[in-house]
Amino acid sequence: MVKVTIDDKTIEVEAGTTILNAARQIGGEVVPPAMCYYSKLTGSGGKCRTCLVEVSQGSEKDPRPMPKLVASCSTQVMDGMVVKNKTSQRVKENRDGVVEFLLINHPLDCPICDQAGECHLQDLSFENGSQKTRFEEEKRTYEPIDIGDKIKLHMNRCILCYRCVHVANQLTNQRVHGILHRGEHAEISTYIEKAVDNDFSGNMIDVCPVGALTDKTFRFKSRVWFLKPMDASCECSKCSGKAVVWMFGNEIYRVTARKDQYGEVEDIDGKTAWICNECRYDKKDLKNWTIEGPRKINRHSVISTNHYTEGKVEPKKLNS
């Protein structure tokens, strides 16, 4: 076990733990935002740079600070390491910078984006974004394309976190889903119009932190905050059958995996509960599911507004 202090909170973690995961063990404010790291996807992380932190003491043995900010998702803790996240002005400035970079070419089309309300980039911009843009150039744009018959790709919104690429790599060893081109022109694509043909390909939608990959069976049906997320389960031969059904009245509008506070698919009985495409796209009837109860949603999320209120809410009369 090694001891690490993050924003003045000290915890003992197993050797080899990353700073980010140590912070998650402490929880709360000290946890850096992570747009590309996804604990359930091997090889993820290190790319978006939103999780940058300052290491003000390298370790007990070598107390020198690290000269550069480091990506907390891919830097392991050392015994006696002291890390600054929220308490570092340098981190704040540089994270603001990263968020600015992520937004300069982003279309900011939240009003017409299905991800609004559960978008990590939205949350991040709220914390670290600026009101005004300094980007006066033309934004790069792409036409939306289909990735198979159930997934829509809006490359304009993509932040190139590579999470979907990792999902694809985990599902199949044929390299059919990846990145084309370089630099600014890099884009997610499938190999010559092919799409990952796998029962679990829909999980790409769940790992996407923004509205770049959306579920075509749900697109434009409803704002997520008008829906009630319910934990539900079903008998499924392919997956755990444990999902969240998003309901409007008695209708199921969409099905997703169960995600934790970091937006990652939860472990159930020691296994990551990815859901299969059948559960996600085809089981839209209440008869398919046993409702377990309301899904707990962070009360600060817009999704938890309007929900679970007793009785009927009367609309306010104007000018009364």
């Binding site: 290190g46 790319k47 978006c48 740079r49 939103t50 910078g97 990263v98 970079f101 992520l102 300069i104 070419n105 932040i159 190139l160 590579y162 990145i179 081109h181 370089r182 630099g183 600014e184 022109h185 890099a186």
Partner: peptide, 10 residues
Amino acid sequence: SCGQCSPCRE
């Protein structure tokens, strides 16, 4: 730029 990390890509 390879385009992996946001500061360099953007």
